[in-house]
């Protein structure tokens, strides 16, 4: 029988969306197979922080104020011990910036198989199918160690798991894991709370060099806010200084998995498409009917973004008003 430990990432007293999703997905699989699930969360929590977590199990909560912004070194030390004490077989971590830093540290400490970015498949089989070489090759990886660590992003279908059961929370004493001379100290986080990461958005409107300038992104902001989504960018748009690097989508940017991705003035280079392998529906707006983005799109329109996007905004408004 498997015993899953889910790392519940805390941010400003809440559990990150990715972690909530991971928890509920693991619960769903575990309910079917009768496996056990526990969770771990570090740092102070708001009273309603665990409200979206369903299913049975124990959540270990290290509530120390000092863990509000924990270093991955401390988290790694705590989890290594918890996994050993509890004899967990599988650890599941959301693929956020923090999760990606923590997972390899844990894999090394526990001699565990780290499987990241797996598309589809179940946790039980352990087989991990993932894209490599800019999304041009689909590889199947197999864990070879006893303990497995899954680093899960939004490549997987969102879980609609609900249950009358709720996990119960117990206090975890993290004091023994602090070392006095930790040489890494996270001083501050800026802009961390207001802007949601593009990696978590369900709808993304992205712009490329074809947008023609920084100012044109106002159009995309408008369309995105209408749809309740975020704005992304191609590398060219980032290199031009039109958008920050944190908005870049693609191989050297973020991998995203929205339900809807609208690419505006983006040519569709393999490196850009590498970040879209898990997007469910792709829409392309491009003036060049032969742009490669159309080969990766479900819906397309050939035209100038400066004309198409304002018109689309009006049409979308109309559709939404009718509902």
């Amino acid at each position: 029988m498997a015993y899953y430990l889910v790392f519940l990432e805390q941010r400003d007293g809440f559990i990150s969306n990715v972690a909530v999703d991971v928890w509920n997905r693991v619960q769903q699989e575990a309910t079917q197979s009768g496996d056990k699930v526990s969770g771990f969360v570090a740092g102070p929590l708001k009273p309603t922080a665990l409200a979206d977590l369903y299913g049975n199990g124990t959540i270990y909560h290290a509530s120390d104020e000092a863990l509000a912004l924990p270093s991955s070194t401390v988290l790694c030390r705590i989890l290594t011990t918890l996994v050993a004490e509890e004899a967990c077989s599988d650890i599941v971590i959301g693929a956020t910036v923090t999760g990606k830093r923590l997972a390899p540290c844990l894999a090394e400490a526990l001699h565990a198989s780290l499987l990241g970015g797996c598309t589809g498949g179940s946790l039980q089989s352990g087989l991990c199918r993932r894209y490599i070489y800019s999304g041009l090759v689909l590889a199947a990886y197999q864990p070879a160690a006893k303990i497995r660590i899954f680093l899960q992003g939004r490549e997987q279908l969102r879980s609609a798991f609900m249950s009358p059961d709720r996990p119960h929370c117990v206090f975890f004493d993290a004091a023994p894991f602090f070392v006095p001379h930790d040489n890494l100290f996270i001083r501050s986080i800026t802009a961390g709370d207001s802007r949601r990461s593009i990696a978590e958005a369900n709808i993304i409107v992205a712009g490329g060099r074809g947008m023609g300038g920084k100012d044109q992104f106002v159009l995309l902001e408008e369309l995105a806010s209408l749809l309740g989504g975020g704005v992304g960018a191609s590398r060219s748009a980032v290199d031009e200084g039109w958008r920050p690097h944190s908005d870049q989508i693609g191989q050297t940017g973020k991998s995203v998995a929205p339900d809807l991705y609208i690419a505006c003035g983006i040519s569709g280079a393999v490196q850009h498409l590498a970040g879209l392998s898990s997007a469910r529906t792709v829409v392309a707006v491009n003036s060049d009917p032969h742009a490669p983005i159309f080969d990766a799109a479900d819906y397309g329109i050939v035209g100038d973004v400066r004309e198409v996007i304002p018109a689309l905004i009006e049409e979308v408004k109309e559709v939404l008003e009718k509902k």
Binding site: L115, L138, A140, A144, A145, D295
Partner: peptide, 20 residues
């Protein structure tokens, strides 16, 4: 190794785009 590559295949997926 802790992880082994079992197999690989080229991705030839091409969506059929519905133009508006």
């Amino acid at each position: 190794p802790l992880v082994r590559l079992r197999s690989a295949e080229l991705v030839l997926s091409r969506k059929s785009c519905c133009f508006a």
